[in-house]
């Protein structure tokens, strides 16, 4: 088994009296694609926000590269080598596609020339190079989702968090994005992905963590998860048996 890159240890997140995440623990191993799935409102994005520092866990800890990062600010965690995309895309709207990626490439670049070089390479990798001069407000959704990925990649992360990067894509865009994720993995970048699209999840992930009502209900390989009665129940309701 390869070594562990990130550990979430008994994490809780409360909003007022409401527990959005309850006692969730899992680890991400170097080089794998770990998927986080669960019904709507299960707390997937909250887990993401706890991992990347937008929320401090109410209880429990998050460890990244052997260091406790609970309570660190997102920009510090990003500097350590963790980047994320947003479910609701947040492009820097009035900047061109290239400038969006240059802004994030500056994290590891000494000069503007170097930042532009990293950005252009990333845009070629994600197939957005032709659109580099477009103001990102004008991009269609599929490309905006890919711009999120490009921007995260330009910070040269070791761990990439993808929050529903496939939602709302048409079949052609879907295949393109699956190809990009595979190539990101080939580069040795570990991926933690939230996804609703079961076909995508089963096709690309090494392991899957399932949560429901903020609690982890299952963990395992795609085959194990598909055969797990608790998961089927969470998705289809109690009376339904697969």
């Amino acid at each position: 088994m390869s070594e562990s890159l990130l550990q979430v240890k008994n994490a809780y997140k409360f909003f007022g009296g409401l527990a959005a995440v309850t006692d969730v623990s899992f680890e991400i191993r170097k080089g794998e694609i770990l998927a986080l799935i669960g019904p709507n409102g299960a707390g997937k994005t909250t887990v993401f926000n706890v991992v990347n520092g937008f929320y401090k866990p109410s209880r429990g800890e998050v460890w990244f590269k052997g260091r406790n990062i609970s309570g660190l600010k997102p920009h510090k965690i990003c500097r350590m080598g963790m980047a994320r995309t947003f479910q609701v895309v947040k492009p820097l709207q009035r900047m061109s596609v290239l400038d969006n990626v240059v802004a994030s490439a500056f994290l590891r670049a000494e000069s503007r020339e170097k930042a532009v070089e990293i950005a252009e390479e990333t845009l070629k990798f994600t197939g957005l190079y032709e659109d580099r001069d477009v103001i990102s407000k004008g991009l269609p959704l599929g490309k905006r989702k890919r711009l999120e990925i490009a921007r995260a990649l330009a910070t040269q992360p070791e761990l990439l968090l993808l929050d529903e990067s496939f939602a709302g894509l048409n079949p052609a865009e879907l295949d393109e994005s699956i190809g990009i994720i595979r190539r990101i993995k080939e580069r040795g970048i570990t991926i933690f992905i939230i996804e609703h699209h079961m076909k995508v999840i089963m096709a690309i992930s090494d392991r899957i963590v399932v949560i429901n009502y903020g609690q982890k209900i299952a963990e395992g390989s795609p085959e194990e998860i598909q055969a797990n009665p608790a998961v089927v129940e969470a998705y289809l309701g109690e009376d339904h048996h697969a």
Binding site: H75, C78, A83, L92, Q93, D99, A103, R151
Partner: peptide, 14 residues
């Protein structure tokens, strides 16, 4: 400009 356009996105870009 990144801060102007989206503070959360900017934070997550380091």
């Amino acid at each position: 400009v990144a801060v102007r356009e989206d503070q959360d996105a900017a934070e997550s870009l380091g």
